[in-house]
Structure formats: C-alpha cells, structure tokens
C-alpha cells in the first residue's frame, strides 16, 4: 500500500470532539471520568483508553479572539522514535505509514512513550500493555476512512495519498496565510515526515507543540551505537530481571514526561 496521509486543517476544526467519540466507538474504548480543564477541554492527555482528543487554546489579541482547536493523536512518524525505542520489537511500521504496537509482544515498559516527542503511547499499568492510535489501519486497509476522518462534519480532516494530500495542504496554507500570516504546516518534515500533517494557525509552541521534535539523542546513541554491540542488554532489561540503571532511568524519564515534558495542549 502506498503512503497515506491525514491532513488536519485546524482552521476548519470547530472543536466538536466528534473525532474523539468516533475513535472510541470504532475501537470499543470505554469512557473515562473527566472534568472541565480549561475552555471546553475535558480530556487533558492520552490514556490507554483515549487515543485522540481535542485541546482548546484561547488567544485574544488586538480585540480579536483566536480560539485554536487541536486534535491530538499519534503522528505516525516516518522515523518513529517509539519504534526505535521499543526494547522488544513490538512496534512496527506499515508501508502506508502507520506505526503500530503489537500487543502480543508489548511488555508495557513505556519506553516508547518516554522517547516519543509528544508522549503519545500510554501504558495500562494493570495489563502491562501500551496503547495508542492505530490510525484505524484496519479500516484504511479495507478501503474505509479512518473513523475520525469519516465523522468530521466541517471537513477539517481529510485522508488520502500522501503526495496528493500534501499538495492540498500547501494550497490551503497559501489561502489561509492571507488572513493568518503565522499559519504553517506541521508534520511535513519532522520525524521523517508524519502521517498526520497539520495546518496550524499559529506557531506550534502556541499549541504546546515542540517546534522541532526529534528522536532523543540518548536513544540514538543507545540504539545505533551501544545496542548493536550489546544486544544482550535488551532481553535482560525487558524481563525486568535486573534493577539496573536502565530501568531506573526509564522510570525517571516516564515521570518527567507525565509531569509536563513535551506534552501539549494543557
């Protein structure tokens, strides 16, 4: 299958959260207890049962309100740090661009999340499994639109061939820039180019997004240099047999991420 792309045109998003419910409906994910956080936002982060949600940012300047809605989900990177990080090879990538966690192999160590620039994957501590958006790869592979795209009323989400979608995104950007000079495409070139590409109305930082997300250099060092020569460390750590520096570091990384880190939309 050729490379796919979802174009998220935030300029058309009305923050209805239809995507969030459609995701839960298709994936049979249970609802979670929430409360209002700010503006109309109630889901503050991904969880093992929440794979996409909408954040709201209000920016009032010169008597003009910009209410910025942002639908978050896994970006499905071309160069996914999570896949690189996974100590048990549970994460794989499809030709079409989707990055998937194999639950049979996943041990729920959370190392993928710790290395994801957006902290997307979330571990269910009772199941010891880590979950995230699948891109509705099952639907896509069967010729259906991803559930979120299928349900989007205002047409803020579009799915198609990557090249075609990028053309659309660029044309739309040129149009939107006329009224919103700070508008930009987010995802085209980062992490090797992401499957979900955004048209943002403002700088990424305004949405709480890292402007230049990268694979952590420690991971590169580990995976590309240390690991090839010390492959035996992996099963060792994975089995949790040793309370080594590795696990301790992993826990620390996870803690720092859940306290803020590079997550967005809070």
């Amino acid at each position: 299958m050729t490379k796919k792309m979802v174009f998220i045109d935030t300029s058309l998003c009305t923050g209805c959260k239809g995507c969030s419910v459609a995701c839960k409906a298709w994936n049979d994910l249970p609802a979670e207890k929430t409360q209002l956080i700010t503006s109309y936002q109630t889901q503050k982060d991904f969880t093992p049962n929440t794979w996409t949600y909408v954040s709201f940012t209000q920016k009032y300047e010169n008597g003009k309100m910009n209410w910025l809605m942002f639908k978050s989900q896994c970006f499905h990177c071309t160069e996914p740090a999570c896949m690189k990080a996974c100590p048990v090879g549970a994460i794989s990538q499809t030709e079409s661009g989707y990055v998937l966690i194999n639950q049979d192999k996943c041990i729920g160590c959370g190392y993928c999340a710790a290395n994801c620039p957006w902290s997307v994957p979330k571990t269910d501590e009772t199941k010891n499994k880590t979950f995230k958006c699948t891109g509705c790869v099952d639907r896509v592979e069967n010729g259906l639109l991803p559930a979120c795209v299928h349900t989007c009323q205002p047409g803020a989400l579009q799915f198609g061939e990557r090249e075609e979608m990028l053309q659309k995104a660029k044309a739309r950007l040129a149009e939107v820039k006329k009224a919103n000079p700070k508008a930009n495409l987010y995802g085209e070139n980062i992490m090797g180019g992401t499957t979900y590409v955004y048209l943002l109305l403002d700088e990424p930082e305004v949405y709480g997004l890292p402007a230049n997300p990268t694979t952590p250099s420690s991971l590169t060092l580990w995976k590309d240099i240390v690991q090839p020569y010390c492959g035996w460390l992996i099963p060792l750590a994975a089995a949790g047999a040793v309370g080594s520096f590795f696990s301790t570091r992993l826990i620390n990384v996870m803690n720092s991420k859940s306290k803020g880190g590079n997550t967005h939309g809070h």
Partner: peptide, 16 residues
Amino acid sequence: ASGLGFDVAAAQAKGY
C-alpha cells in the same frame, strides 16, 4: 480491538 487494544500481528494475519 477491545480491552487489549490493537494486535498488529493478529490483524495482519487475518488480513485486517
């Protein structure tokens, strides 16, 4: 798809 999330291997084996 429920409970245990998405099993890539199984999905692929069964042709999604």
